[in-house]
Design a protein around this nucleic acid. Structure first.
Lengths: 332, 332
DNA sequence: GTCCTTATACTCAGATTCAGCATAACTGGT
DNA sequence: ACCAGTTATGCTGAATCTGAGTATAAGGAC
């Protein structure tokens, strides 16, 4: 970590934030750190907060942003990242609370990185925390989380009644219904950021930059573990993007060993998307989409009939337009 | 425009680049400027190049990046942007050729903005150029562009033969086939950036930061109008993103008047995606997806039977999960 | 062997998509 | 009035995809 002392008022610093995701034991995990300078952003005296790993850009040495990211991640964590994609650039004023004390404006370019399944030692490793510790309403694998009906829905209802509907803006009540699947609306796993932003606007989640000073903030208990700065927002962005991406790009295979059973693949997708899938149809889908091919070898330790081991068919990339959908009616 | 004089070697500057898109006469257009400081990046003495409008971030005043963008666009062009979305952050070294002369590292946060159809005065307006002037291989509305088979395919074939296949990297020949729909591979309108990057790697398009110095660069004639710096790459990113987005978000309605005929809507989508669509199926799709509703009024000047005027149904946003697709088999 | 567990094959109905055909409603020309 | 040309809109049948099962296979523990 470099020391970034406060500079002159109109100065700007570029940071690179990494959301590094792995899945172990059907739990999607993100690598977090504590005790860095982010830890200065404590939450009402409750001690240092978790933060996403962060690295600076060295304009003299780093040729590209992505290479800079790979570099310091390898240095600091020893991880060699596989799949890396740029997520979003966050630049709101005061997103780093230190700005208020004269610190530089920090622009963070956030990246999403996927790494292969951690070895069984993973769960206990410091830093690999469940993504659902931070965003607990996102995991619907065991059914609709009680948290939503017990805490979030009532709180949002109160907020939307209090907030006067502004003309030209969508009705806050409807926004809540759509985002959280209330009142019969369907649950859309991809709207992670929309949900987080709604909770943020309603003052139901903590975020360092704003809620330390917002007197209306009434964080609901159990709405997830807080993070430093706007890192929970960054995490929400990452999860939403990842959930969307697995639908039309074969990114999940980045997180699997070279061969795997179809149930392993399914559990991985379920862990990330937060919903359960229909087993037979899932198999059919991935098989007839040509995404995988059998190896003829079998995994015996399933607890039942041995499962065939499959591998990812890289060729699918040139056969299918994009393992997913298409425009309504393209003429040829 | 601020003056950004060269500073100390490790300095960084944040810029905001705007890809502002409108459609007139079934031509998708992008707003470009010349004569700004970008114009310094001339192309082998051929005069100033087109550039995307660019504005600085003022860390003291601008509260968010997006607001900064809206601000200077309104100031400089008088345009009030409607839909705005962050695209990507470009930060490669030397993407601004001025860096080689000691200029600061310029990190550009690029935004995509959509504005309503220009009035008929549009086509002649300075700056509103067809996107396909810059990326001519992307327009398949009149069938497969001759340019691809006559110039691009042979040039790529030559390049891929020359470039030795690196182990671990995808075969360059196959990349070309997939990207450009050669050898029977399907054409995917969304792979705009992939195609541009392939042409760039093969040295077939000009880009200021690199090809001014790359001796192997043999730009093929008629591969589109060049732009300053890496702006053509930014444009390609924008077009690809836009093409993808219209499939699952109703963004096109941002570019239409409040009421429109279904053919207008179809022509708009065709202009952006660069392919022709089946008329009857297109109607059915947008109608039964609940995206539009008839107004009962009619547009008489169609040249044939009058067409009903439709309007966008905003309610669709809360009915459908996302006007598009879904995960393979979500259990309820 | 029986029971339990997981894997995999197959079915069937409903929904969606593709590719047309058919008809409606207007214009302009004769 | 009639006709040709043009665009709009309605409708259909085949192919494909999807959702939700049932049925069978193949292992382990006892």
């Amino acid at each position: 970590m470099p020391d970034r002392e406060a500079r002159s008022g109109d100065d700007v610093v570029i940071g690179l934030d990494a959301v590094i995701v792995a899945v172990t034991d059907e739990v999607p995990r993100v690598l977090t750190v504590t005790g860095t300078r982010h830890a200065l952003a404590t939450s009402a005296g409750r001690g240092p907060l978790d933060a996403l790993p962060f690295g600076p850009l060295d304009p003299c040495r780093d040729v590209t942003l992505e290479r800079a990211l790979r570099g310091w991640v390898a240095e600091q964590t020893g991880l060699e990242l596989g799949y890396v994609e740029q997520l979003y650039t966050f630049g709101d004023r005061y997103r780093d609370p230190a700005e208020r004390a004269g610190g530089p404006r920090v622009i963070s370019v956030a990246y999403l990185a996927l790494v292969a399944e951690r070895s069984p030692a993973g769960p206990g490793e410091p830093g690999w925390r469940s993504i659902y510790d931070y965003l607990p309403w996102e995991d619907w694998r065991e059914g609709r989380p009680a948290l939503i009906d017990e805490a979030i829905a009532p709180a949002l209802a109160g907020w939307s009644k209090a907030a006067p509907p502004r003309p030209g803006f969508p009705d806050p009540r409807q926004r809540a219904d759509i985002a959280f699947g209330l009142e019969g609306a369907p649950w859309n796993p991809e709207r992670v950021l929309e949900r987080y932003e709604l909770l943020f606007e309603a003052g139901l989640v903590e975020e360092a930059g704003r809620h330390a000073r917002d007197p209306r903030a009434r964080p609901v208990p159990h709405t997830g573990r807080p993070m430093a700065q706007d890192h929970r927002r960054i995490l929400a962005t990452a999860l939403g993007r990842l959930r969307g991406k697995i639908r039309y790009r074969p990114v999940v295979f980045e997180m699997l060993p070279p061969t795997f059973t179809l149930l392993q693949l399914q559990r991985l997708v379920e862990a990330l998307s937060g919903v359960r899938l229909h087993k037979q149809n899932f198999r059919r889908l991935v098989e007839q989409a040509g995404l995988v091919e059998g190896t003829g070898r079998y995994e015996p330790a399933t607890g039942g009939r041995p499962a065939e081991l499959f591998r990812f068919r890289r060729e699918v990339l040139r056969e299918r337009p994009a393992p997913g959908v298409g425009l309504p009616g393209v003429l040829r």
